[in-house]
Design a protein around this nucleic acid. Structure first.
Length: 358
DNA sequence: CAAATTTGACCGAT
DNA sequence: ATCGGTCAAATTTG
């Protein structure tokens, strides 16, 4: 039952912590003046990243942090029209951090009406797996429960709930809970891939009309962003951890793309980079690091950031970054799958917020 | 065949 | 006991 899951999560956790430990060891050996500062920075970044991830797996929320700035949902903002975004710190309860078990949670009301038509619900860039549906007391529409597809594979704890609004059935209320600890590069790549492949062809995503049965169809097909029409609003409650809120469902996807061509362009680029970043080891070659660095912009940046937190990563460091995990994986706990290490390493999601280091 | 969904059972809070 | 959330077996989907 849950045992498997538990075991796996523990394993992942241990793996993460072990990695942190190993990295710390490495750091020690790089403490001498002969080592470059960059190398140390890289290691520190990796260590922090490891711990951060481990903690997030435990649903740990950092020490209460000053009530703050809106959790960087800024990426939504720039959309001119159809989306309105705002934050809501729960008007009723000011005591935002009285409880600490909270996980980041935010709700978006998404309208899938305009223009979007029968087109399936949005694709937010992640792949979800439905694990339940419940009728809710007040509502006349059932609520669907989704979790990240990679929960098992990567111990990603992100979940979301989707509920159709009562008054306006074209409104989907999506509540996200928890953050993705999985590598989202591949999913994004896939999402955009399918996106591009099918162009903007809104192929029949059969929207089950037969009553309120199913709300959303998280088929990994089209997206919302082009889906035009989606009016939506975001409301964040339970702000707790800093990083927790910094990162939200649409990191890139929300990028408001004005023109479609632009969008296309953007995505194809995105895809390439993602693929390059996630699957092609070619850029790893130390010699070509510079060019690679440039060509692989977003994703690569992100992934290396997560580890390095250092924009200008010199070759040596890049090299270091790339080689380190290898050494890490043959650490004491040998039976942990390397694949995991690899994944984690390649696309470990970035805790690359500005305040990460503060 | 594996992977995703459906759906009632289960379970922990009120 | 009720409600919201999750699990997991059965079932569908691809």
């Amino acid at each position: 039952m849950e045992k498997k899951n538990m075991d796996f999560e523990q394993k992942t956790l241990i793996n993460e912590l072990t990695q942190g430990k190993e990295l710390a060891k490495q750091l020690i050996s790089h403490l001498q003046p002969s080592s470059s500062k960059e190398t140390r920075d890289v290691l520190v970044g990796k260590i922090l990243s490891s711990y951060e991830k481990a903690l997030s797996m435990l649903n740990w929320v950092g020490e209460p942090k000053a009530l703050e700035s809106p959790p960087s949902m800024t990426s939504f903002e720039n959309t001119s029209s159809p989306r309105s975004v705002f934050y809501d710190q729960d008007s009723n309860h000011r005591d935002v951090f009285k409880k600490r078990k909270t996980m980041s949670k935010w709700t978006e009301k998404i309208s899938v009406s305009l223009g979007t038509g029968p087109e399936g619900p949005m694709e937010d860039g992640y792949s979800w797996r439905k694990y339940g549906q419940k009728d809710i007391l007040g509502a006349n529409h059932p609520r669907g429960y989704f979790r990240c597809t990679h929960r098992k594979a990567q111990g990603c704890l992100a979940t979301k709930q989707v509920q159709r609004s009562d008054q306006d059935p074209s409104l989907l209320e999506v509540t996200y809970k928890g953050r993705h600890t999985c590598s989202r590069a591949s999913q994004l790549a896939m999402a955009s891939a399918s996106l591009i492949k099918q162009g903007f062809k809104a192929e029949k995503n059969q929207f089950p009309h037969h009553e309120e049965g199913k709300e959303e169809k998280p088929k990994q097909s089209q997206s919302t962003f082009f889906g035009l029409g989606a009016g939506f609003e975001v409301k964040t409650e339970d702000l707790d951890t800093r990083e927790d809120d910094i990162f939200q469902p649409f990191s890139f996807s929300s990028t408001p793309i004005e023109s479609e061509n632009l969008g296309n362009h953007f995505f194809s680029e995105m895809i390439d980079t993602n693929f390059a970043g996630s699957f092609s080891p070619s850029f790893i070659s130390p010699t070509s690091s510079e060019s690679a660095y440039f060509s692989v912009s977003p994703c690569h940046n992100i992934s290396s950031f997560g580890l390095a937190n250092n924009v200008k990563t010199p070759e040596s460091d890049l090299n270091e970054i790339l080689s380190a995990p290898t050494s890490v994986s043959n650490s004491p706990i040998g039976d942990l799958d390397l694949t995991l290490d690899k994944v984690d390493f390649e696309s470990n999601f970035p805790f690359d917020s500005p305040e990460f280091f503060t």
